[in-house]
């Protein structure tokens, strides 16, 4: 178990290191931040079966809070990251009390509504401190040997964050709690009759997903040294949905594979095709009708098929020897 986890982490880190020379340090840093966000989204959607159209609210909260902290209070980047995560988590705790009671379309839309509210707040009523549409620049001091304004430092730091988040979520999703949230996805009522207060566990999941998205937000802010309302533009939520679907919902590997795929598509396709969003639409249709398990799910079924074949072959072989 331990060994497998370690290998998984190494494979993921190695994968990102491999694509770095092909793409670029900046791009891959972006990709990794998005993958962190996609994993937090997948916890809600893929594992617990709650589709949110407003998860960027937490990324935005993380970005704004760490940004404002750096701008007005202290220029310590580590403290800013902690503040960003904490505030996003606290926000999750608060609005989670309402949101988590809903399911289905209602859950998706109420998240969207809160996301809109957040977007509007930073754009207009809080303009004095957020500088509205234009956003604001930030400048973090180095933390020990970590100089956050260096591209490479940022790259390595984000890579470590990604690996840590993956590890944390892997642990959480293979624990009894992981079984609990997968059970909630399938039949919440039944889980209540196993003696679990599903409301509480849904709330915990929501808060966890929000905090991880908050981390992605703080990294976004530090990476660009800049925060503007685009970080919580509601339209961005489509990206997370798409990433989970293309990679395979309900698997962290799927979220990472999907996150990278989505970033590749959205970063490179526009160079060749002007109306690239149309391609996204077609791809989504393809996934829904033909390819429901996503890339990772598909690889898994191939793997299972091969394993099965192997055992069948073995069984035949052993039988022959005995005879």
């Amino acid at each position: 178990m331990r060994e497998r986890e370690l290998i998984a982490l190494l494979v993921i880190a190695g994968g990102f290191l491999l694509i770095t020379p092909v793409l670029s340090v900046n791009r891959v840093t972006d990709f990794m931040i998005f993958c962190i966000f996609a994993m937090s989204f997948d916890l809600l959607y893929g594992y617990m079966g709650r589709l949110s159209f407003g998860h960027l609210l937490f990324l935005g909260t993380g970005a704004y809070c760490s940004g404002l902290f750096l701008k007005y209070i202290s220029r310590n980047p580590m403290l800013a990251i902690i503040v960003g995560i904490l505030v996003a988590g606290l926000l999750g705790m608060l609005i989670g009390l309402i949101i988590v009671r809903t399911t289905g379309a209602c859950f998706a839309l109420i998240n969207l509504a809160f996301n809109h509210i957040g977007f509007f707040l930073v754009l207009s009523p809080l303009r004095r401190i957020t500088n509205g549409e234009d956003g604001f620049g930030i400048h973090a001091l180095p933390f020990g040997f970590l100089n956050f304004s260096s591209r490479t430092t940022m790259y390595w730091f984000v890579l470590i964050c990604l690996v840590l988040v993956f590890y944390l979520l892997k642990r959480v999703t293979s624990s009894p709690f992981g079984i609990l949230i997968r059970s909630i996805k399938e039949d919440e009522t039944r889980v209540k009759f196993l003696g679990y207060n599903t409301f509480f566990y849904k709330w915990v999941t929501f808060v966890l997903a929000g905090s991880v998205a908050g981390l992605a937000g703080t990294l976004t802010a530090l990476n660009y040294n800049y925060v503007n309302p685009n970080v919580m533009d509601v339209h961005g939520n489509v990206g997370a949905v798409f990433a989970c679907l293309i990679g395979g919902a309900g698997s962290l590997y799927g979220a990472v594979v999907g996150g990278v795929s989505y970033m590749v598509i959205s970063n490179y396709l526009p160079i060749y095709i002007q109306r690239w969003e149309m391609f996204l639409g077609f791809a989504l249709l393809m996934i829904i009708f033909r390819f429901q398990k996503g890339i990772w799910g598909y690889l898994q079924s191939v793997w299972e098929y091969v394993e099965r074949k192997k055992t069948v072959m073995k069984a035949i072989g052993v039988g022959a020897v005995k005879r």
């Binding site: 178990m1 642990r171 293979s174 624990s175 009894p176």
Partner: peptide, 9 residues
């Protein structure tokens, strides 16, 4: 610790 972080298996 064991409910949230330890493997179920």
């Amino acid at each position: 610790q064991s409910f949230f972080f330890a493997p179920a298996r």
